[in-house]
Design a protein around this nucleic acid. Structure first.
Length: 228
DNA sequence: GACCAGGCACATC
DNA sequence: GATGTGCATGGT
């Protein structure tokens, strides 16, 4: 994941992992429940997870609308459509050639392992499904965990650029730590709850977008109380 | 026109 | 294991 320049909050103390649940409560109070993932079906969530790689969601929405309007937002249609034609439809999401190829890889996987049925994928055990997803070209840890959590309702905490940016600034972990190290930390500190992981990640994105940009607005951030 | 946005694979050291 | 690069659109 691409990260902005490091920024350490001046005179901050180190956030303890035991405080993570309180952090969630503070964010939830500030932003309200986020009702993620923004998608109507598990399949739409999966497609969105691939399309949003390093891309603003507003651009992904345009691509999703194109797919819907052309009747392509289902496994069978994506299996049949030519990669070039798919790339044209998802053009607004950026990296359209790469992402068309990744969607095709996922669809082939969905058919070879689950007969094209998302319900069968969702019925898979979490760890087994995660292993299999990571073996699909174009699905890395964040995309796999987004699919596991938001499409398959399995308790895997999603680590993304916002998670590292927000919590590295609070010195929870150095941002250079691996994806797995960050995920272990959250999953050890929090109960394995799908609803908690779901909304906590969405809250992190909310606070990251609003207060934790390259020029952060720490003074007004709901996490400010955790620094003193 | 520069910078940024809910990554990933691949090459190189 | 760490670091660098290509992939691309649309909003600010």
């Amino acid at each position: 994941m691409k990260l902005s320049k490091p920024f350490i909050y001046p005179q901050s103390r180190k956030l303890r992992r035991e405080e993570l649940h309180s952090v969630y409560q503070a964010l939830r109070k500030a932003f309200g429940h986020q009702h993620w993932w923004p998608g109507e079906t598990p399949f739409e969530v999966i497609v969105g997870a691939i399309l949003t790689q390093n891309t603003a969601w507003t651009n992904v929405e345009k691509a999703i609308i194109n797919l819907k309007e052309n009747g392509k937002l289902n496994p069978e249609s994506l299996r049949r459509i030519a990669e070039r034609g798919l790339a044209k439809l998802i053009r607004p999401a950026g990296y359209f050639n790469v992402k068309a190829n990744r969607l095709k890889h996922f669809i082939r996987f969905l058919y070879s392992e689950y007969q094209g049925r998302v319900e069968r994928l969702r019925a898979e055990r979490g760890d087994a499904l995660r292993q299999k997803l990571l073996a699909v070209k174009g699905i890395g840890p964040e995309t796999a965990d987004s699919i596991l959590l938001y499409a398959a309702q399995k308790p895997y905490f999603v680590i993304d650029a916002y998670t590292k940016r927000v919590f590295a600034r609070h010195r929870l972990l150095p941002r250079r730590h691996s994806y797995d190290a960050w995920q272990r930390l959250f999953q050890k500190a929090l109960p394995a709850s799908v609803s908690l992981y779901n909304d906590f990640h969405a809250q992190i994105v909310a606070v990251g977008k609003r207060y934790c940009r390259t020029q952060p607005d720490c003074a007004n951030c709901p996490l400010h109380p955790f620094l003193s």
